[in-house]
Write a protein that binds this DNA or RNA. Sequence first.
DNA 1: CTTCGACTACGAGTACGTTCATCTTTATCG
DNA 2: CGATAAAGATGAACGTACTCGTAGTCGAAG
Lengths: 216, 216
Amino acid sequence: MNVLVVEDEPKLADGLARFLTYAGFHVTVAGTLAEAKRQLEQPFDAVLLDVRLPDGEGWTLIPKLKTLKPRPAIILATARGEADDRVFGLELGADDYLVKPIVLKELEIRLKRLVKQTDEISFGDMTVDARSRTVTDAGQAIRMTNKEYELLLFFLKHSGEALDRNRLLDEVWDYTFAGDTRTVDTHVKQLRDKSPTMKRQLKTVHRVGYRLEEVR
Amino acid sequence: MNVLVVEDEPKLADGLARFLTYAGFHVTVAGTLAEAKRQLEQPFDAVLLDVRLPDGEGWTLIPKLKTLKPRPAIILATARGEADDRVFGLELGADDYLVKPIVLKELEIRLKRLVKQTDEISFGDMTVDARSRTVTDAGQAIRMTNKEYELLLFFLKHSGEALDRNRLLDEVWDYTFAGDTRTVDTHVKQLRDKSPTMKRQLKTVHRVGYRLEEVR
DNA sequence: CTTCGACTACGAGTACGTTCATCTTTATCG
DNA sequence: CGATAAAGATGAACGTACTCGTAGTCGAAG
């Protein structure tokens, strides 16, 4: 579990790093936005981002963070009471917010919670473990190919939504493809063939696309 | 989207209720733990829980909330700086935490993030969820074809208006069709057949077209 | 009596499911 | 490390199922 701590105050950065390491995270520290950008060549599970930095406001980094794959969880930290910053950060797409002074235990809890979200997803009899990219359905392990796995994950993350083919092509494939393609259909068929749960719950929405119907 | 606000200070409770209603939530207020317990016979999507209450600490309710199904999202609210409360609440299983004074916009953002979004229009006993393209009437799920769904949506968005066939053909169909067509009639019949509410409320306006009569 | 809407049934067109051939990527083994 | 095999991704082709729109008839309203 890799965490990037972006914090310019050396004492605080050091303290955070120590604590998080102790709590079982693997920590990297960046003191400036520029350095953070360099570090982000490597993948991170989460980024703890101070708002006040020597070379700019922390939240300017958020749009960039959101384009990364895998997209790291984003936690902002600001001096207390700056409520506007808080709202602004959340609206930009930060996943959580901490008010300084940082309570270490709280940081740990929030971090673990955010990271866990992307760790294991269950849906009916299915379980998808993001760490190992393993899928089981009704206790049976299912071997998924890359695309199948990513498509499945997207459906799970948007269960209930009617998703049209263009959206799927855009987000699961990198494609921005104009013409007509059966590719999505083919992969949907694979999912339905491999998993009984998908066979039951993955509905086609005529003239639109597909919808993963929630189990109740 | 039902939210239970547990807050004893009447002014604050009222303000919260107003704002959340405005933001599109359906709000119920409880002033004490005892009252909250009574309200929780009904299902809620989220509970906003003040820590200081006349008859006890708010977090004592958390274990009970976690046994409910559907399990509501739990947001705690406390006076600022009570960091221990914060950690304690999160460890007990609250999903999020707000520091008073509550910033309404922040509350809205956090609520919307925690609660699975539905984009629904309701009309009498009918509910149409745009996100999943599903329709229910009197609790029953109704399977709609694409055109039926779009026509229904158009009627809902223009309830009360008398809509002539040309307008419907223009806007629901892509048609710019001059001649005479029974197409609209056919689809109106489908709607009336499939949904009791439509059977009752979708009136024909002689020599003009149709009008969806508002329910009172 | 005339006109308009309700309703049924049918046919054309279209979108989806499925298979298959081709190209690409990944894995294996020397 | 490179060659070769295996597996996966892709999109075209074809069959099928479904939806939509049209026509014809009946009944009701004006």
